[in-house]
Design a protein around this nucleic acid. Structure first.
Lengths: 241, 241
DNA sequence: TGAAAAGCAAGAGCACTGCTCACTTTTCTT
DNA sequence: AAGAAAAGTGAGCAGTGCTCTTGCTTTTCA
């Protein structure tokens, strides 16, 4: 064996087991998350489960917050994967209403399958924890799916509405990057409201605020989503015909 | 001084200083809440601030969770007081749209003035903490204001809509106690959606999910609330005239 | 091939937490 | 005034995140 033969995989061997252990730590953390919740996630408990010293964890994550950040990013990506997959799974890709309903239903389903991870990303922020820049990209994927569907349905629509309140235009100007200014401001505002409503319905139900008022069987959610899809994706002109 | 002279206010003196200390503990907890957040609320820190042994706290609250419950109930009542006051402050009590906007604006204002207390009641629930029965009554006060305004505006309305999906009727049957069945099911569903949207808009903004997309000046919120009020409080029949 | 460098794990230790318990002190009641 | 009840104390248990030193293994390079 030439020395060059032992180094072709040089970048790998050690880095690979490091990646494996990193994944094992996150897996254990997620397991603990599902039973104990985020705020009582214990590095020592993870170390116990993996049969290693608690201090060894710090070779992989500099702090508890850093572990949480990694879990948060994973969660954002996981929910976005689920939503995008549901959107793409629509039998007729031209049926935007169906695609919207699929995506919204997948969002709720993922939330109920992973309540603690949902709470991690959509619940109250961890105190003293500032979301690092790495999270904002994956965080935008789900809203992007929604806004894209609306753009597809009504992007080139002739804007017949009276000029919008300039203050509102500027308040929503941060979304221009998303839409490329393809949506008139009032419609853009409706999209934001729809996103807020989706998030609100799921969170209220998941966090127990619908106890004794709305049944948790998804029937209400399904109706609300269908209404929302029709309202958002159908232009007034179309509806009038 | 006769011994009877030191006891005439017998029913009060001890109970009063107990109530005072209880309030002082909650005040200190709230102060700590605002700087550290709920999950790192420390009984020992409270005891330090009040110059007493940490174990003494347990004479007033049996556990950390019990203290949190007390703070949660207080927060529910505080936000409900704010919303009800704003509703009642409308110059014209017959202008239901104005009352609705007042209430919704007060809700957002309270949330931004007391972000940690808002997170306490509307954020992700404390893990392993089951909301006791005492909280559900004050928790219903804000939704009750909203639903009441809708009932006032459209309570006796003649229901011309086609019969609603029985599954939806049953999913929302838990709200009958609130409304006395005064609202047709589709409208009731819209009210729930409106509440979810209000909650969603405030939470998304407060928890930082609107960063880089929606300006945090309340302009968007104000527009959305006005739209919502008109949609909810104006009957289609009225709008047609 | 052998020595220097870098990565890794361990264990002791610090300062903190919620909570319990036996004990003393204070206050109210009889 | 005596006894009972309530309030306050401090030590202690089991747990936490995190740091630092001490060795060991793997990789790198001359």
């Amino acid at each position: 064996m030439s020395p060059s033969n032992s180094t072709p995989k040089a970048p790998g061997v050690r880095a690979r087991i490091r990646a494996e252990l990193t994944a094992a730590i996150k897996a254990s953390a997620r397991r603990q998350l599902a039973t104990e919740g985020a705020s009582s996630l214990s590095l020592r408990a993870i170390a116990r489960e993996l049969d290693m010293a608690s201090s060894a964890i710090y070779r992989y994550f500099a702090s508890r917050d850093e572990l949480l950040t990694a879990l948060i990013i994973d969660a954002y990506d996981a929910v976005a994967d689920a939503v995008e997959a549901a959107d793409a799974a629509a039998v007729d890709q031209d049926d935007l209403v169906a695609r919207f309903c699929n995506a919204a239903t997948a969002l709720r389903a993922w939330a109920f399958e992973h309540p603690h991870e949902y709470a991690l990303i959509f619940g109250s922020p961890i105190p003293g924890y500032e979301a690092p820049q790495d999270t904002i990209d994956p965080a935008g994927r789900v809203p992007f799916v929604i806004i894209s569907l609306v753009v597809m349905a009504r992007g080139g629509e002739h804007d017949t509405s009276p000029p919008a309140d300039p203050a509102l235009v500027s308040a929503l100007s941060g979304l221009d990057g998303f839409t490329g200014s393809l949506l008139p401001t009032p419609l853009l505002s409706e999209v934001v409201s729809a996103w807020a409503q989706l998030f609100g319905m799921i969170s209220l139900e998941l966090f127990g605020h619908f106890k004794n008022s709305v049944a948790d069987d998804g029937v209400y959610y399904g109706h609300a989503v269908r209404d929302m899809a029709n309202r958002l994706l159908t232009s007034p002109a179309e509806a009038a015909t």
